[in-house]
């Protein structure tokens, strides 16, 4: 797929996203609405004292509470001031993080951009506020919240200029991002998760912020089965690490085993804390991935 800058049909800049991509987005938007219809409203609900109509809970009155929420019947019965709580319908923000470290390389980064843009488009289509951030060893760039479908082009432009660079330190990036007192929402992290500081450490930051998390693990076929043999010098894309090594079938087999274990570790972490995890290969059509995400119910649920 071409990553050259193109213009959409209405003449706006589409970034790396070509016409084909835009058509797929429209299709995804329609499909996602259909998937979500009958199950959920476009908005998520938060339990709080508010102006909603659905009763949620009782709690005791404390000075400063709105007298209109006092349950006078309960007061008559119990001689205590008790507040009725209603679920107030409110939209939850979507935070999409794209890993732009050197380990991603152009291929995984492009794939990640498409997935990010597609999820953002689906979110905007459902009237969510979408925050977009690019990170490596910290937050490289951040796009303020976008609210309307027409603002998707801001996201395209934002993503279009992202190049792979720097080492990975997702924990530091998340810590800095959520240090700015963000509202609770859903966090989508699109990355290869090759983080020398530990993926769990980064996810812990998200977990401590009580955010929901969807981890989209992007790998290339070479990541899982390296096309190597014989005498090679392995060079890390991010660091100066290098190692002379003789690649043998046995060694490759061991690598594949380790790779699977590594992915399983991340998935186990997500499962343990109720987070979503999806692994995809760059060869896999991104629109199918989005559909899988939609079906999984982890996104916009």
């Amino acid at each position: 797929m071409s990553t050259a800058s193109n213009l959409s049909a209405d003449g706006r800049e589409a970034g790396p996203f070509d016409e084909e991509f835009l058509r797929k987005l429209e299709l995804l938007s329609v499909v996602s609405k259909r998937l979500l219809a009958g199950q959920f409203k476009a908005e998520r609900r938060a339990k709080k004292v508010g102006s909603g109509i659905e009763f949620a809970d009782y709690r005791g009155y404390v000075p400063g509470d709105d007298f209109r929420a006092v349950d006078w019947r309960a007061y008559m019965r119990l001689n205590r001031l008790i507040l009725r709580l209603f679920e107030e319908e409110t939209d939850l923000p979507v935070y999409i993080f794209v890993d732009a470290s050197s380990s991603m390389g152009q291929r995984k980064l492009d794939y990640a951009k498409r997935v990010a843009a597609a999820l953002a488009y689906v979110g905007l289509s459902n009237l969510d506020k979408v925050h977009m951030a690019v990170y490596a060893d910290g937050i490289i760039e951040e796009l303020p919240a976008q609210r309307t479908k027409s603002q998707i082009f801001n996201i395209f432009r934002f993503l279009n200029g992202v190049k792979p660079s720097h080492e990975t330190n997702a924990g530091r990036a998340f810590h800095r991002f959520f240090g700015a007192n963000r509202r609770r929402g859903i966090v989508v992290v699109i990355s290869d998760f090759f983080d020398p500081h530990g993926v769990g450490h980064a996810f812990d930051v998200v977990r401590y912020q009580r955010q929901d998390l969807l981890a989209v693990h992007v790998v290339t076929p070479e990541d899982s089965v390296p096309p190597l043999n014989g005498e090679v010098t392995l060079v890390d894309k991010e660091t100066d690490w290098n190692q002379d090594i003789t690649i043998t079938p046995g060694l490759l087999s061991a690598y594949e085993e380790v790779f699977e274990e590594y992915c399983d570790e991340i998935e186990r972490y997500c499962t343990l804390y109720g987070f979503g995890y999806m692994r995809t290969v760059t060869d896999f059509p991104f629109e199918d991935l989005i559909m899988q995400v939609m079906r999984s119910g982890r996104f916009l649920s």
Binding site: P226, V232, V235, V258, Y262
Partner: peptide
Amino acid sequence: RIQHRRALVSSSILWERVLERK
């Protein structure tokens, strides 16, 4: 003498684990 080809890998994390296991 044996010439080693340079091979860029996404990360050394997995390879270090492989070598340690080996």
